[in-house]
Design a protein around this nucleic acid. Structure first.
Length: 499
RNA sequence: GGUCCCUUAGCUCAAUUGGCAGAGCAAUUGACUCUUAAUCAAUAGGUUGUAGGUUCGAUUCCUACAGGGAUCACCA
């Protein structure tokens, strides 16, 4: 049996709750019929003067959590917070019923109350409810963190996110922004006649990306399943089935380290459209970001990590192999030659193990020399086949694919391509992956026969793309840690206290 | 997983060279009918993350462990 942890302050609050019950007050009432959100009140009356308010006799019913109490004998002010805005209320002994004033005297910071009363402006002109009736709604048995500094301890902020949300307004703003962003993204695709779909989170084969999966167990079937690392291969089965435009916003799971930019589960937007290629999706990406820019930025400037980044499309386009040459000084011939590349890495990149495959060497070159330099939004195009097992061969150079990634502030934001729809080519790419795995690349995929059968049925030419929602939220909220944009980021579990 | 840093009252933070563990907010009691980081007076609140060690004496020095942060590795 669990008991409430009783420190001095909680004991006192429990006693106050008992006194309320002795007054005949319901300790845990069932509802409160409020007429306004605080923000509605603020918006509606912001231009109404003190004098006009006196005449109008505007009565409101509203409810919120007490963030501050300033008691002055027979009257007092409180600030309430309803999760969106704050509202000041004024309680006077000669105005509220006697019982209500007794209740008021037993209130603590953190309690939630409902009030009814007419609006007025104080001497300092703050819009305030002159309380005529006060309704007790719930007692908070623990004190709130300090009002001035708020809750600073990151661990407490993430583990007890509810406290963070009550006390730190910025936190609330970040999650409002995130929600609005996802809403705008959905609208963007709905307007273009995309169908929103949900594909499995548990896969018999983890495919569609290069990553190590989480393993879970299905008892009745007696098999292991993998939490998906990407929805890609299922979404493309839908393309085969004739769904012409689809998108999915949902979680992916990757069994890797936790860092400032990585959470084991993260939210991914993926979208696909038949009869289009990667050029079309580069443009669509710019259109989508343009919508977000207009909603979240002023003058299209991203303020990130102390830098100002111009986010106005169109964005710079560079070739993957060219940009590596430009930033590292290697020649294109050397870069295309595995042995010469190996020699270059040995000579110039120290403290790194030699990657097991040619593809991994290219990724090392890119990560080491290029990624951090891409601060202004930049499309990196034409990734080599070796590291793009699901993208269609380039029309220009068959060693490359029609794949692009978008980088902003040194972060990978999107990854898209002309989808490979040749089942024979796809099979050989999968087989190359198997060879990579044998060479020691434990993120290489296996052969997905079921997916190949779908492709054999015939998939029209298509473009597809994935975007990391958490990282977008980081960019637009100006936060440099993914934990700030995920309500409950993964932390090591605390060892439970002895019960 | 490696390296470095952090952990003191409910919260935000102090504590000199190793020498009585303190402040603000929150809380309690009292005063106060336009305050807004309300004000004034008084009071209470601590096994200094945990377990060891060195020492006459440890918040302070050492070791291990736990949690967090930064960074590297892996990745989006």
């Amino acid at each position: 049996m669990r008991h409430i942890m009783l420190d001095d302050q909680s004991t006192i609050r429990l006693e106050k709750l008992k006194k309320l019950e002795e007054l005949g007050i319901a300790a845990y009432p069932y509802d409160f019929p409020k007429t306004h959100e605080f923000k509605e009140i603020a918006d509606k009356y912001k231009d109404i003067s003190k004098e006009e308010l006196e005449q109008k006799e505007e009565v409101v019913k509203a409810a919120g959590r007490i963030l501050a109490i300033r008691k002055m004998g027979k009257s007092g002010f409180m600030h309430l917070y309803d999760g969106e805005a704050k509202l000041q209320v004024y309680v006077r002994k000669d105005i509220v019923p006697d019982t209500d004033f007794e209740v008021y005297k037993l209130l603590d910071i953190g309690d939630i109350i409902g009030v009814e009363g007419k609006l007025f402006r104080t001497q300092s002109n703050e819009l305030t409810v002159l309380v005529s009736q006060l309704t007790f709604l719930v007692k908070s048995l623990h004190p709130l963190p300090e009002k001035w500094h708020g809750l600073q301890d990151k661990e407490l902020r993430f583990r007890q996110r509810y406290l963070d949300l009550i006390v730190n307004e910025d936190t609330r703003k970040i999650f409002n922004l995130r929600s609005k962003m996802i809403q705008l993204i959905r609208m963007f695709f709905y307007e273009r006649n995309y169908l929103e779909v949900e594909t499995p989170m548990m896969h018999p084969i983890a495919g569609g990306a290069a990553a190590r999966p989480f393993i879970t167990r299905h008892n009745a079937l007696g098999i292991d399943l993998y939490l998906r690392i990407a929805p890609e291969l299922y979404l493309k089965r839908l393309l085969v089935g004739g769904m012409e435009k689809v998108f999915e916003v949902n979680r992916n799971f990757r069994n890797e380290g936790i860092s400032q930019k990585h959470n084991p589960e993260f939210t991914m937007l993926e979208f696909y459209e038949l009869y289009k290629d990667f050029n079309h999706y580069i443009k669509l990406t710019e259109d989508l970001l343009d919508v977000l820019n207009k909603n979240f930025l002023t003058d299209c400037i991203l303020e990130y990590d102390g830098k100002q980044i111009n986010a106005k499309p169109p964005y710079k386009r560079v070739k993957f192999m060219d940009i590596i040459c430009e930033k590292s000084g290697i020649s294109l011939d050397e870069l295309w030659d595995e042995e010469k590349l190996k020699a270059f890495i040995t000579k110039n990149i120290h403290g790194e193990e030699m990657p097991p495959t040619y593809g991994k060497m290219l990724e090392l070159m890119f990560d080491h020399y290029v990624e951090q330099t891409l601060q202004e939004p930049t499309f990196v195009m034409y990734y080599p086949k070796a590291i793009s097992p699901l993208s269609k061969r380039s029309r220009i150079d068959e060693r490359e694919t029609e794949r692009f990634e978008l980088f902003i502030a040194g972060m990978e934001i999107a990854n898209g391509f002309s989808e490979l729809n040749d089942p024979i080519d796809q099979r050989s790419r999968f087989e190359a992956q198997v060879k990579d795995r044998e060479k020691g690349d434990d993120e290489a995929q296996g052969v997905d026969e079921d997916f190949l059968s779908a492709l054999e049925q015939g998939m029209a030419p298509a473009a597809g793309e994935g975007m990391g929602i958490d990282r977008l939220a980081m960019l637009y909220s100006g936060t440099n840690s993914i934990k700030e944009v995920i309500l409950f980021p993964h932390l090591r579990p605390r060892v439970a206290a002895v019960e």
